[in-house]
């Protein structure tokens, strides 16, 4: 029963990891920008939701505001930070340092404005009840899975049916080709940032309800997203989502066999192993040598 409980708990966490990781992978795949400030979108979305929720506003308003702020932040990063750097042909790590700086600014502004320390949106959704003997599930479990499933389905349809979605996928495969066909890769980059950042918002809202937030939470989110993108195979959204899910499950299920202090390391052992033995990831093309 412990195993089942850990598995289900891991799925709930994993669904949220999958959403943020997928957003990160979408941005990285389409624009080749290592969006290290993805965690900052998450922090901003979570805190805005908390603010509205704790002031008695309805949940839908909080969710919309969270999506809006995450999207706005992502687009602003593309427009004002990454694009100027790329215009100068700045390298991979130039982008990384710039984004790191922005994350520091966001984290500390949030701390000054919303107070430092642990905050949580109090909701009955996160309270678990015993559904089977020894197995506790909270309503938020179903919400998380449903939200993730619906969003992935919608994203899949958009990327395969809508012209802009198709172009976005094409951009991730060959950006020169896009230009040759007269499509604006700048507009598509903005779209990738908007979509990718928006995907972080629902995960942030659900995290605010379940495990709660502190102003430094973005860091962890970022690590997981990055690991999942690599494990899943760069350029594969399906891979990133599945890897995010597995990282969540692994982190939880490992407690069936080991003591909790090893849980976090376990995810990264998986990551390290993947890079050594299957560098192209779950669904990636063989880009390594």
């Amino acid at each position: 029963m412990l195993f089942l409980q850990l598995l289900l708990g891991g799925l709930q966490t994993g669904a949220l990891y999958a959403l943020t990781a997928c957003g990160f992978a979408l941005i990285f795949g389409a624009t080749k920008v290592f969006h290290f400030a993805h965690g900052a979108s998450f922090t901003l979305a979570g805190y805005l939701f908390l603010l509205l929720w704790n002031n008695g506003h309805p949940a839908w308003l909080g969710v919309l505001a969270a999506i809006a702020v995450a999207t706005g932040f992502g687009v602003a990063m593309e427009r004002f930070v990454y694009r100027p750097i790329q215009r100068h042909e700045g390298g991979f790590f130039t982008v990384f340092v710039a984004a790191f700086g922005v994350s520091l600014v966001v984290q500390n502004l949030v701390g000054m404005w919303a107070g430092r320390g642990f905050v949580v949106a109090d909701s009955s959704l996160s309270r678990a009840t015993e559904v089977l003997p020894e197995v506790f599930l909270a309503p938020v479990f179903w919400v998380s899975l449903a939200v993730a499933a619906v969003l992935f389905l919608a994203l899949g349809i958009f990327l395969t049916r809508h012209p802009a979605g198709v172009a976005l996928r094409a951009l991730s495969q060959n950006s020169d080709l896009i230009r040759a066909y007269g499509l604006s890769s700048h507009r598509l980059s903005l779209l990738a940032f908007a979509l990718g950042s928006a995907l972080a918002a629902p995960a942030a809202v659900l995290t605010a309800i379940t495990t709660g937030m502190n102003e430094a939470v973005g860091h962890h989110v970022m690590l997981i997203s990055m690991a999942a993108t690599i494990v899943g195979g760069v350029g594969s959204l399906k891979g990133a989502a599945l890897a995010g899910l597995s990282l969540g499950v692994a982190e939880s299920v490992v407690l069936n066999f080991a003591d909790p202090q090893w849980a976090e390391a376990a995810s990264f052992v998986v990551l390290f192993g993947f890079i050594l033995f299957r560098p192209s990831g779950l669904f990636g093309h063989a880009v390594a040598r």
């Binding site: 409980q5 506790f136 495990t211 939880s252 299920v253 407690l255 909790p260 976090e264």
Partner: peptide, 20 residues
């Protein structure tokens, strides 16, 4: 007794072990 890392954020799995 359950030792946790300073950076751990998820305590659902630990809770399951504790209940046992």
């Amino acid at each position: 007794s359950f030792s946790i890392p300073r950076t751990a954020q998820q305590f659902g799995p630990v809770a399951a072990r504790i209940r046992q």
